[in-house]
Write a protein that binds this DNA or RNA. Structure first.
Lengths: 201, 201
DNA sequence: ATTATAAATGAATAAAATTCAATATTGCTT
DNA sequence: AAGCAATATTGAATTTTATTCATTTATAAT
């Protein structure tokens, strides 16, 4: 049924707006129902409860992130360039979607139930993608092989998440993309990459 | 009045236990009141509301962290050794205080009101301390000067927080201190440190 | 047009946070 | 030690929200 899915999207859209303005705790079902122009009971026709509605938000958004990322990575050869692009795209995406970033980073990612959601699977696809790039870099000989690839992934995601989280907590006062170059420098040194093809500083 | 403060501590202790077992959302004032052996109304004599009680928890704990850290840093000269020790102590502290880690990392740090709490001031002391160490390292010539010190701090805190958060979300299945060496390697390379006094890889 | 099925409603219920008037305790003064 | 004022404690009443459910309304099929 086409109309059913449409109304579901309508409710999710209202939920995005309400949840990102206030937080989970301070958002009410009645606010969301009002914004979506439906009765409170209707929401429970589409979602098991408030939490279920909450976790339905990132599913589409994360898929979008991954889809667009692949597009941006197209045509770039070499792990070095791919990592640069990944860092840029990550910061760019959240610069463009701060409300979603707020909800994802400050509330969902940090919730134990998140690991059980569909959005998490997409998120996992993303982290798997980084792993591939790291392996590629190791084969090319531009990423050190003496460090565990999972730890290297921690490095990359750790810095990015930290930079993003600070930005969100500070109220998005500066341009997130300003951080691009410095994050790059740090990560590239951290994983033993170098712009010099000889591989020495 | 001594007894007033004692009862406040009693309520906080009960709150730590309840909040770390369930989360903020699923912890009730009546559970906390029961565990503290007071009436529900009493809690509101000491705390403005549930959130205020929640944010009172990390104040003492963060002070403890900073106090102990200074002790561990005593006698260590050189930014290199201090950073190693800092990484070790950070992981050690949360290995020993996983319930508190869970509450702090997964719920508080990520809450906008956190920046307004007293605990945040202590937390800020901690990040200021890292900044000092970084400056010291730059003067010693073992930390690169071409990267902003605040970004370097992002690197260190970013990796540590990321490693800690994953560990907590995975249910503390492995020994957090296992990550020590690899985190060290990454950070030390990332900030341009080297064990070789010549400063070359 | 009639009927069956699905969707939507909002008043009723339930559960939890918060308030408050009444009660008990403590500490001070003589 | 008794009386009094100030403080602390209580738990029942109130308020706020999530969730349920019996009823109504819309949709689709024959």
């Amino acid at each position: 049924m086409i109309k059913r899915n449409l109304k579901k999207q309508l409710i999710i859209q209202a939920a995005i707006e309400v949840f990102s303005k206030n937080n989970f705790q301070h958002s009410t079902i009645s606010q969301i129902a009002q914004k979506a122009n439906v009765a409170e009971g209707t929401i429970y026709q589409y979602f098991k409860n408030k939490e279920d509605l909450f976790f339905s938000i990132p599913v589409e958004k994360t898929k979008e992130f991954c889809r667009e990322l692949e597009l941006h990575l197209q045509g770039i050869t070499g792990a070095f360039g791919k990592i640069r692009k990944f860092i840029w795209y990550y910061l760019y995406f959240f610069k463009m979607n701060p409300e979603y970033g707020r909800t994802l980073m400050l509330e969902m990612r940090v919730n134990k139930s998140f690991a059980k959601t569909k959005a998490y699977s997409s998120f996992k696809d993303l982290t798997d993608r980084i792993l591939e790039i790291i392996k590629e870099g190791q084969e090319e000989g531009i990423i050190r092989k003496d460090v565990d690839i999972f730890i290297t992934r921690h490095l990359i995601l750790g810095i990015l998440e930290h930079v993003l989280t600070r930005w969100l907590l500070k109220g998005e006062q500066y341009d997130l993309l300003e951080r691009c170059d410095e994050v790059n420098k740090l990560i590239i040194h951290g994983i033993g990459l170098t712009t010099d093809p000889n591989g020495l500083k």
